[in-house]
Amino acid sequence: MATIEVENISKRFGTQIAVDDVTFSVEPGEIFGLLGPNGAGKTTSLRIILDIFKPDSGTVAILGGTMSEDKKDRIGYLPEERGLYQDIQLESGLTYMATLKGLSKPEASRRVSAYLERFDLGEARKKKIKELSKGMQQKAQLIVTLVHQPELIIIDEPFSALDPVNTQMVKDLLREERNNGKAIIMCTHQMHQVEALCDRLVLIHKGKVMLYGKLEEIQRMYAAHEVIVRTLVDLPTDLAGVERVEQENSTAHLQLAPGTSAQSVLRELVERKIPVEQFEIAMPTLDEIFIQVVQGQGESA
């Protein structure tokens, strides 16, 4: 059973259509990327999923049905705009937030304490939240999202303000949660993080779904008919089925003619005894796909 089933949801604010007939689902044990440019309708979609907004049409099933107060305790949410009480001490602020998620005070206190140590915030536990750096506040916000061990984690830009060490720690944490069977929706503009973490994704643009599916399938769908070859010698210019070669140092991008397979090119290189160090089918980066779709050159999935 899917953790989230979004079916044909639409939402309009005045004359502006924020979300237009969006459909996707999120399964347990996967990290799902919710992507799109600014103003695409991602946050509105998340707020509809979380029952903050009601859709004008369409339905959302979350954790097996409609949203209820009890289900709120099974969801961890990290919004794009950070929100923590600024004037209270870090530990007591986080403990209060954890109790609002259904934990008893002693249990909340115990878990917050453990997370503070894990996130290297132990020494700041008595500091007021407004005295913390942006990175520390981001880590505190992540603790609020994860402390009650939710079944569904919704995180919007989880890596903002984090240094590389903490970014890696959060990535490891998210993978750990996924391996524990949690469903994770991640919104981010950092496409390399999506490539590194997400199993599936949906790309929304102007409220509409532009791409939806497995990351690898989407990359293949947008792959040009190209191979990347790295050799120790210059490539011959008369390779059969190759229309153009773009050489960059020792790496060459070979654009193949229609009907030519990558295997036939590799076979010819081997037969002509050209020492090949690397041979791969050129896959577009998610950045390239994103730009292509958003600039109106992509096709609706």
Binding site: I52, E69, K72, Y77, G83, L84, Y85, Q86, M97, L100
Partner: peptide
């Protein structure tokens, strides 16, 4: 107003009705 301005509201409202 503070909760609205510092965005705490969005977290709280996904925990409490």
């Amino acid at each position: 107003v503070e909760e609205k301005e510092n965005r705490t509201m969005e977290i709280i409202i996904t925990s409490v009705s």
